[in-house]
C-alpha cells in the first residue's frame, strides 16, 4: 500500500500535472492554421514553447523538494529533461485521441513540417509504444516527474539530492503499478523502459534541430536556451 506521505505526494504530482497543460487556444490552431510546411513548423515551435512553460510550472509544483535544490541545478534539470518531458506529454495526446480530429491533424502537421523521415519513424514508434501501455494519468504524472529528476543530466552539482527525490517518485510509481496493474508484474519495468527510449529520442531531437538550422529555421529565445541552440 502507499504510505500517507506517498499518497500525499501522488496527489500533489497528479494535481500539478492536470493543472498545467497546453492551452486549448494553441491546440485549436491545429485545425485552423494553413497547411504549409512553414506554417506547420511555426505551429510546432509554438507548441514546443508552450510545453516548456507548462513543464516549468509543473516542476515548480512538484512537492518532493524540487524547490529546495539550488537554482543552477533546477535549471540544469529542466534543460536536461525538457525534450523528453515534451515527447512524453505529446505521446499522451496521441494516446487520448484529442477531440475534433486534433490528433490526426497534429500527426499530419508533424509529418509535413520539415522533419526528416529518419526522425519521424522513431517518434511515432515511441507514441505507439506509450499508447500500448495504456498508462493512467498518475503514471504519466509520475513518469514525467521521474524524467525531470534524473540525476545524470549534465552540470548537476548536487546529484545525491536529485537522486533522493527521484527515488521517492520511483517508489511511488512502483507501488501504483502494482496496485493498478496487478495482472501485469512487468508493467513498472516497461514504464522504465520508456525512459531509455526517451533518451534515444532526445538524441534524435538534437540532430533534428541541426537539420532545421541548416534549412535556416529560427527558434525563439526560450527554445534556444532550453535546447542549447545558438
Amino acid at each position: 500500500e502507499l504510505s500517507q506521505d506517498q499518497q500525499t505526494l501522488l496527489t500533489y504530482v497528479l494535481d500539478a500535472y492536470n493543472k498545467h497543460r497546453i492551452p486549448s487556444d494553441i491546440s485549436k490552431k491545429l485545425l485552423q492554421e494553413q497547411y504549409s510546411r512553414e506554417e506547420n513548423f511555426l505551429l510546432l515551435t509554438e507548441m514546443a514553447t508552450s510545453h516548456v512553460q507548462v513543464l516549468v510550472e509543473f516542476t515548480k509544483n512538484i512537492p518532493a523538494g524540487f524547490q529546495t535544490l539550488d537554482h543552477e541545478d533546477q535549471i540544469a534539470l529542466l534543460k536536461g529533461s525538457a525534450v523528453e518531458a515534451m515527447f512524453l506529454r505529446s505521446a499522451q495526446s496521441f494516446t487520448k485521441k484529442l477531440p475534433h480530429g486534433h490528433t490526426e491533424m497534429l500527426e499530419e502537421r508533424i509529418r509535413k513540417s520539415g522533419i526528416s523521415e529518419e526522425f519521424i519513424v522513431p517518434m511515432f514508434n515511441f507514441y505507439k509504444s506509450i499508447r500500448e501501455l495504456q498508462m493512467m494519468q498518475e503514471e504519466h504524472a509520475l513518469l514525467t516527474a521521474i524524467t525531470i529528476l534524473s540525476p545524470d543530466r549534465p552540470y548537476i552539482r548536487d546529484q545525491q539530492a536529485v537522486e533522493q527525490l527521484q527515488e521517492a517518485m520511483l517508489e511511488v510509481l512502483r507501488k501504483v503499478c502494482k496496485l493498478k496493474h496487478p495482472q501485469e508484474p512487468q508493467h513498472f519495468a516497461r514504464l522504465l523502459g520508456r525512459l531509455t527510449e526517451l533518451r534515444t529520442l532526445h538524441h534524435h531531437h538534437a540532430e533534428m534541430l541541426e537539420s532545421w538550422r541548416m534549412s535556416d529555421h529560427k527558434f525563439n529565445p526560450l527554445l534556444c536556451e532550453i535546447w542549447d541552440v545558438q
Binding site: K19, E57, Q74, P221, E225, I226
Partner: peptide, 16 residues
Amino acid sequence: EEPSLLKKLLLAPPNS
C-alpha cells in the same frame, strides 16, 4: 551573459 529566461520562469510565483 544573457539573462536566463528559464530562470525568470522558475523564479516567477507559481501559476503565474
